[in-house]
């Protein structure tokens, strides 16, 4: 299938600051790409270029087959965008906001009104439909903003940190909506600082740092890159810890980590499930009393730390937030 979004060598500079340093992306139709990176990594700049808000200094990009610079007006009719700052008008009601967006997509008055009602219902805002947005909660604004992005039923959707600042329940609701849209064939590019979100929603994850894509793949592929699974073991005494260590050394694919105080042992292994079965067999044969044993996949957090050398939630202040 042809990609719904492509980017080749996107560069954007603000004076001396290089916000994007050659970003390449390709998102197949009907899939979700998660753009993962810390604040200031270039996520928002990438989205702003792809949604025609910014012109790249170099490189080219297409969305739904249209060039982001040359075909910007036609491209805009094919996309929906929802940002981290809810783009809704405080003084208008929820219904008026959505109707206005429908008119500006040139859907006509009747259709705009109908779409507004449909979306308000879908996002559980029917009760608040005729109240000014000023009185909405943060979660309600965010839902209304996303509804605004969906007014014209765009085939390509850009979500810039759609759940930043939302409570867990609102976040789960947002995830559900995105999943439904993708099931219906929509292509989604979403940026996020939450590794869990990328893990949960994205077919592919692009890790972006200092304006470059430093890793690309499925969440599982990225986790494999830093060494697959680990067995985590808890025992009852220091003697057991040593015994377990000796018994399991042949299984380890890397360096084992022992925590003498907590009496825990972490063993990196190749094929996780099979290794766990073997390990428990050996421990039983050596009569090592095991308090707890489990298999753990590396988290995207660890992937991130390994790839970038810094934690995902580390704040890197750049112009991206000072806008």
């Amino acid at each position: 299938m042809s990609p719904a979004i492509t980017a080749e060598g996107l560069v954007k500079k603000y004076g001396d600051v290089v916000a994007l340093d050659g970003v390449d992306l390709s998102v197949p139709e009907g899939t979700v790409l998660g753009l993962l990176g810390p604040n200031g990594a270039g996520k928002t700049t990438t989205v702003r270029i792809l949604t025609t808000l910014l012109k790249p200094d170099a490189g080219r990009a297409t969305v739904a087959g249209f060039d982001v610079v040359a075909d910007a007006p036609r491209l805009r009719a094919r996309i929906g965008a929802s940002g981290q700052y809810a783009a809704v008008d405080d003084h208008l009601t929820g219904a008026e906001n959505l109707e206005m967006v429908g008119r500006l997509y040139h859907l006509g008055t009747g259709r705009s009104r109908q779409r507004a009602r449909e979306l308000l219902e879908r996002f559980d805002l029917t009760e608040a439909a005729d109240r000014p947005v000023r009185g909405y909660s943060g979660g309600m604004r965010r839902r209304l903003d996303l509804a605004g992005a969906l007014v014209a039923e765009p085939p390509v959707l850009f979500l810039d940190e759609p759940t930043t600042g939302l409570d867990p329940r609102a976040r789960a609701g947002m995830w559900e909506v995105v999943s439904e849209l993708v099931a219906g064939g929509t292509t989604v590019l979403l940026t996020t600082q939450y590794l869990e979100e990328a893990d949960r929603l994205a077919d592919a994850v692009a890790v972006i740092d200092h304006g470059r894509v430093i890793a690309l793949g499925t969440a599982d592929e990225l986790k494999d890159r830093i060494g697959g699974d680990c067995i985590e073991l808890a025992v009852n005494g220091a003697a057991d810890l040593d015994a377990a260590r000796r018994a399991l050394a042949p299984l380890a694919t890397g360096e084992m980590k022992a925590d003498g105080a907590a009496l825990r042992l972490t063993i990196p292994v190749g094929d996780g499930t099979a290794a766990l079965v073997t390990a428990l067999g050996r421990l039983a044969a050596e009569r090592v009393a095991v308090r707890d044993a489990g298999l753990r996949r590396p988290t995207l957090d660890e992937v991130f730390l390994t790839l970038t050398g810094h934690r995902a939630d580390e704040l890197v202040t750049t112009e991206e937030d000072g806008r």
Partner: peptide
């Protein structure tokens, strides 16, 4: 953000 919305329409 409202002007951003306008600009993507």
């Amino acid at each position: 953000g409202i002007f951003d919305r306008f600009r993507t329409l």
